[in-house]
């Protein structure tokens, strides 16, 4: 899941300042799950903006809200074509992908980001999410006991812990476990410590030629069928 945080209200207020009619567009998938831009947050933001307007009067806006199931597929965006025709800007509470999908579908309209898209992660407990994957494009989790050092070690190093670890925690964040200690403990349990003793060469960043594209359909050479 993609995890994001709603932007501070004053930042959003500044962003929409010059647009009178604004559509607040929520996203019903990841952004709903991570409390950043689901229907409730759309509604909350709507209310907050209205209070800001009534209490400090920073411009007069008319807001609409709508929450799509997903913003990252263009077909869903067709559902708001009519509404979009009446507004001056779309404030997307989708992740960075949603904001861009809106921009692509409605080229004539400003598409504003309402959230800071942060990472790909999982739920730790209600309201707490942890990053788990850096989308490095070259997964080596089989060697690290299912614990990703690229994501969970602040330095993303591949050959074991640095010397900064203290009490099993990371030197950069005393609340965060040292990923390499976790890897070590799990490999030990799995009797696979030899995986840690192995030398891992520098990462291949060729796997991340941004922007990336994945094509899952197989291309078929039309000649082959007749050959």
């Amino acid at each position: 899941m993609i995890v994001a945080e709603q932007k501070p209200l004053d930042e959003i207020s500044r962003m929409i300042a010059s647009y009178e009619r604004v559509l607040i567009l929520g996203c019903g998938t990841c952004m709903t799950v991570c409390d950043a831009g689901g229907e409730r947050e759309v509604s909350f933001l709507h209310n907050a903006l209205r209070v800001a307007q009534s209490k400090i009067g920073n411009g007069i806006h008319i807001f609409w809200e709508y929450t799509l199931k997903r913003q990252c597929d263009p077909e869903f965006l067709e559902l708001i074509v009519e509404r979009v025709a009446e507004v001056d800007a779309v404030l997307s509470l989708g992740c960075g992908i949603g904001v861009q999908a809106v921009a692509e579908r409605f080229p004539e309209l400003p598409s504003l980001p309402g959230v800071n898209t942060s990472f790909m992660g999982m739920t730790r407990e209600t309201g707490v999410w942890d990053e788990r994957c850096a989308a490095c494009g070259d997964c080596r989790l089989e060697d690290t006991a299912g614990i990703c050092p690229i994501t969970r070690c602040i330095k993303g190093i591949l050959n074991g812990p640095c010397a900064g670890t203290k009490n099993g925690k990371c030197e950069a964040n005393k609340d965060m476990d040292c990923a390499w200690l976790l890897v070590y403990e799990r490999l030990e349990k799995l009797a696979q410590l030899e995986r840690m003793r192995r030398y891992y060469p520098p990462r291949n960043f060729r796997t991340i030629p941004r922007p990336r594209r994945i094509i899952s359909k197989t291309s078929v050479d039309p000649g082959e069928e007749y050959g």
Binding site: G28, T29, T32, V33, G38, E39, T67, K69, T123, E125, T126
Partner: peptide, 13 residues
Amino acid sequence: QDRCATCLTCLRI
């Protein structure tokens, strides 16, 4: 159920 994001918040809290 269609709009439920299956976020499991209800289940957890």
